[in-house]
């Protein structure tokens, strides 16, 4: 890990960080990854373990969960910028 790599990851994560933080994060990441990387050493786990899992997807109908507009006002009130019933953002294109 190095400073440039961390700056690039921060860019992917849409977080502005300074050079100094990137430098110190690169050292911390080396220590953390050095520790957690031990999971890579265990090779005796096959795909079959995933298939045994009790987990399954829970689906519901793509229908109207509540009457339209019930929360609109409350949710719009939380937006940093709005215009009428719309959340306002800067021009994208």
């Amino acid at each position: 890990m190095n400073k440039e790599k961390v700056l690039n990851l921060a860019k992917l994560a849409r977080i502005e960080i300074g050079d100094e933080e990137a430098e110190s994060l690169s050292h911390e990441f080396d220590a953390i990854l050095g520790y957690v990387g031990e999971v890579r050493n265990v090779t005796n786990i096959g795909q079959s373990m995933f298939n045994e899992s009790m987990l399954h997807n829970v689906m519901r109908e793509d229908s109207q969960p509540h009457e339209s507009g019930r929360y609109t006002k409350k949710i719009l009130e939380q937006a940093p910028a709005r215009e009428g019933e719309y959340i306002k953002v800067k021009k994208i294109l």
Partner: peptide, 15 residues
């Protein structure tokens, strides 16, 4: 290397 290995480890520990 990391995420997939961690998920497999999670399954193994649970089992």
């Amino acid at each position: 290397e990391y995420y997939e290995s961690a998920l497999k480890m999670k399954r193994l520990i649970s089992k």
